[in-house]
C-alpha cells in the first residue's frame, strides 16, 4: 500500500463518518453512532440506518465509480478531458433511467431501472468512441460529448414534460445535476452489484492502460488485446455510470477533477491512477454531499452544483492548457 493510498483512505474514512453525522435532524454524534452500530428501538436508529447510512454509502460508491470511470476513459483515450459527465455518458444513462421510470418498466422488473440506465450509457459511450475515433483529438471528443449531452438532455426533458405527473417536469434538474437526498437502502442494493461488476472490469484494465502509454503498437506487441480492452472499457464504464445515474442522477466533473489532481502523485501511470481515482472520487463526492447539506440543510441543493463549481474552472484551465500545447 502506497502512502497516497493510505492518505486517501484516511481522508475517506473521516469524510464517511462526517457524512453520517451531518443532517437536518439535530442529534449528537455519540448517541447517533451508537444507534447506527448497536441498533435498538427508536427513531434515531431509523434515521441512522435508513436515511444517513444509505446516503453515505451511495456517496462512497458513486463517487468511487465516477472517479474510476474518469481515470479509465482518460487513460484509454489518452486525453485528460474525458469525463463521463462531459462526454455525455451520464446524460444518456439518465435518459435510459427516465424512460424506464416513466414507462413503468422500472417497476415491472427489479433490475429494470439499472439495466435501462446501463443501456443508455452503453449507447452514449459507443457514440462518443465512434464520433471521436480511437485516438480522437480533444476537440472532436468534446464536440461529440456536447452533441450527445444536448440530445440526451433534450430527450430527457421531453419525456418528463410528457409525463402525466405534474411533478415530473420539475425533476429535469435532478436528472441533470444529481442528488443523494432521501435515498434508501433499496437504492444501494440497486446500484451496488452493477458498480462492483463495472469496477472489476475497469480495474482489470490497469496493465493495459500502462502499456498503452507506449503507443498502440507497443501495447499490442506486449500482448494487450486492444479490441478486448475497448469492450471492457465500454461495458465497465456503462455499468458504473449507468447504475450511479439511475439512483442519483447525472453528477458531472468528478471523473474530470479527481484523475487530474491525482495524476502527478502516481507518476503519471494510468494503471496506478485507477485505484487512486476511485478513492479520490469517493472522497470528493462525500465532501460535496457534506457541503450541500451544510449550506442548505433543509433543502435539496443539487450535488452537480457543487461539483461543477469545483470542476468547471478546472475544465477551463485544461482547455487553456490544451490550446497552449497545440501551438
Amino acid at each position: 500500500m502506497t502512502r497516497l493510498t493510505l492518505i486517501l483512505s484516511g481522508l475517506l474514512v473521516a469524510l464517511f463518518v462526517t457524512a453520517l453525522l451531518i443532517g437536518p435532524a439535530h442529534i449528537s454524534p455519540g448517541p447517533s453512532l451508537r444507534a447506527l452500530i448497536m441498533g435498538g428501538e427508536g427513531p434515531m436508529t431509523l434515521v441512522m440506518r435508513e436515511i444517513r447510512l444509505p446516503r453515505a454509502l451511495l456517496g462512497l460508491l458513486i463517487g468511487g465509480a465516477l472517479g474510476l470511470a474518469g481515470a479509465a476513459m482518460q487513460g484509454y483515450l489518452r486525453n485528460p478531458l474525458a469525463d463521463p459527465g462531459l462526454i455525455g455518458v451520464s446524460g444518456s444513462a439518465a435518459l435510459g433511467a427516465v424512460l424506464a421510470i416513466q414507462t413503468g418498466f422500472a417497476t415491472t422488473w427489479s433490475l429494470g431501472l439499472p439495466m435501462a440506465a446501463l443501456s443508455g450509457a452503453v449507447l452514449g459511450v459507443c457514440a462518443v468512441l465512434l464520433l471521436a475515433g480511437p485516438r480522437g483529438s480533444s476537440l472532436s471528443l468534446i464536440l461529440a460529448g456536447i452533441a450527445i449531452s444536448a440530445l440526451a438532455g433534450a430527450l430527457t426533458a421531453l419525456v418528463l414534460n410528457l409525463s402525466p405527473n405534474p411533478f415530473a417536469a420539475n425533476e429535469i434538474v435532478f436528472w441533470m445535476m444529481g442528488s443523494l437526498s432521501d435515498r434508501s437502502m433499496t437504492h444501494v442494493w440497486i446500484a451496488l452489484p452493477f458498480i462492483l461488476l463495472g469496477s472489476a472490469l475497469l480495474a482489470s484494465l490497469s496493465r493495459g492502460l500502462d502499456a498503452l502509454t507506449l503507443g498502440e503498437d507497443a501495447a499490442e506487441a506486449m500482448g494487450i488485446g486492444l479490441r478486448r480492452m475497448r469492450l471492457t472499457l465500454i461495458f465497465g464504464t456503462a455499468a458504473v455510470v449507468g447504475a450511479s445515474t439511475a439512483v442519483a442522477g447525472a453528477i458531472g466533473f468528478v471523473g474530470l477533477v479527481v484523475p487530474h489532481l491525482l495524476r502527478p502523485f502516481v507518476g503519471a501511470r494510468p494503471g496506478r491512477l485507477l485505484l487512486a481515482s476511485t478513492l479520490g472520487g469517493a472522497a470528493m463526492l462525500l465532501a460535496a454531499d457534506i457541503v450541500v447539506r451544510a449550506i442548505l440543510p433543509d433543502r435539496d441543493l443539487k450535488l452537480g452544483v457543487v461539483t461543477a463549481l469545483i470542476g468547471a474552472p478546472l475544465f477551463l484551465h485544461l482547455i487553456y492548457r490544451t490550446r497552449q500545447d497545440a501551438t
Binding site: S163, N165, P166, S184
Partner: peptide, 19 residues
C-alpha cells in the same frame, strides 16, 4: 400520487415511512 412517476412523490414510499 398522480398518474405517472415522480421522485417528488416517491419520498412518501421511502422505507422509513413504512417503518
Amino acid at each position: 400520487p398522480y398518474a405517472g412517476e415522480s421522485r417528488a412523490e416517491a419520498v412518501t414510499d421511502h422505507p422509513v415511512i413504512a417503518a
